[in-house]
Design a protein around this nucleic acid. Structure first.
Lengths: 232, 232
DNA sequence: ACCTCCGTAGTGGTCGGACCACCTTCGTGA
DNA sequence: TCACGAAGGTGGTCCGACCACTACGGAGGT
């Protein structure tokens, strides 16, 4: 009997694990180019079709990047690369799961905003104010949403934790917010949102972490409460 | 000109988006069975190979589940299904990224532990104590790690937010902890870990959320500090 | 009438080959 | 010296065949 092949799971799953192991084990560095699909397949003793499925899987996970005509490369393995799939969670979650997601966002975003209050620099603060102003200068819901997202993104970015920023980016994905906020905003919540944003902004200017935490938690909590009440 | 085909990106990427849209749009319910690979391919006008890649991608994301000989099914789309891939992030992150990951875990786990202190039931508390006792009754590092994981999992579970639990599960994945803790535990941190666990336990028994939050934050923070000091 | 067993149709899993679309490189020519 | 174009290499797509496994239902026995 040949013991060289453990034979657990499908060949594609094995290939995925082996490539992941190569990267985790250090034989493949971030940014490095992999052998060709054909070579990799021969190397692991599987067909090119199965190897392509493995590569595709690692591509959607943000671990690999395939460039047509050039080759397959390991991504930089930055937080943004690996956490891009987090948006899928937000897009496909429903019902009670959405509330839980918002609760996670409230916890992380309030902490991030508190950190930002302590660390934010003048240029970063200027960017925050820019989006705040742009939000109030238009009536187009689409544009408001864009600057709303950018407003929070700028704040979270100032907290200095890229991983946290990437997670929150997923939790605030465009389709997610559009889905939840459509109903929420229609209940005349614009004015309240404006006040909450202003309160967050004042805390940032004052470099007051506790006030920032409270303001951000209240802001996200408002939507959370509304969504919870909709589940009846 | 045929305008029926938008032609952006690869056909596989389009197929992934279309299937995701079907699920998000409600034409595919959780647990429902999809058409066969061959039918789906014909339906979207692509080859079976490309369709298989799309299905494989959605499978690793925890959205679909393929059962050999039976068919392809939509998962229940529970937090655990969709966030299983989160472990990959922890496994492949390195250097500064690891510290950021631990910071996120500290924030979430301290909050979860605080919630647990307020809500934990007697049976749940019993399970926590079981793992605590088992941890102190053995010298096998492997077994200690197992019960350590289960200890925290039981606590987080008592917080009542499955999504948060699934995220923390990923942040505490076996390979992740084994990697970080190997060096940490060798510095005689066993005794300190024991005291910290005991402190968390006392806070749970007393149903004291603030004490629980502080104890959990300190516990994770210890490892975080140590890892930060190793980056020199 | 009921249960057991096994055949069979249908499904996902794997393979090999062919061709296309795109990028990169290098040699040719101005 | 530099711009251009041809050629090779790479990922992207498709096809057809076969294998491994599951599920369903009918034949046979009790």
């Amino acid at each position: 009997m040949e013991q060289t092949a453990p034979q657990k799971g499908t060949v594609t799953e094995r290939a995925i694990e082996q490539i992941k192991a190569m990267i985790g084990g250090g034989s493949l560095e971030p940014g490095e180019r992999l052998p060709t699909e054909r070579d990799l397949a021969a190397q692991l003793g599987i067909s090119r079709s199965s190897m392509r499925e493995a590569i595709r899987a690692l591509t959607v996970l943000g671990v690999l990047e395939a460039r047509h005509g050039s080759g397959i490369y390991v991504t930089q393995l930055e937080a943004g690369d690996l956490l891009e799939t987090f948006g899928v969670v937000a897009d496909l979650s429903r019902g009670p799961r959405l509330v839980e997601l918002l609760e996670v966002r409230r916890i992380l975003e309030s902490t991030a905003t508190a950190l930002a209050a302590a660390r934010i620099t003048r240029p970063q603060l200027a960017e925050v104010e820019e989006h705040l102003a742009a939000m109030e200068a238009t009536d187009d819901p689409e544009e408001i949403l864009s600057h709303d997202l950018a407003f929070h993104r700028a704040i979270v970015s100032a907290a200095g934790n890229e991983t946290m920023a990437a997670i929150l980016e997923g939790l605030s994905s465009r389709t997610f917010r559009a889905r939840v906020w459509r109903g929420y905003q229609e209940e005349g919540a614009f004015e309240r949102t404006r006040r909450e944003h202003a309160r967050i902004h004042r805390a940032l200017v004052a470099h007051d972490p506790e006030a920032a935490r409270a303001a951000a938690a209240a802001h996200v909590g408002e939507v959370e409460e509304w969504l919870r009440s909709q589940l009846d």
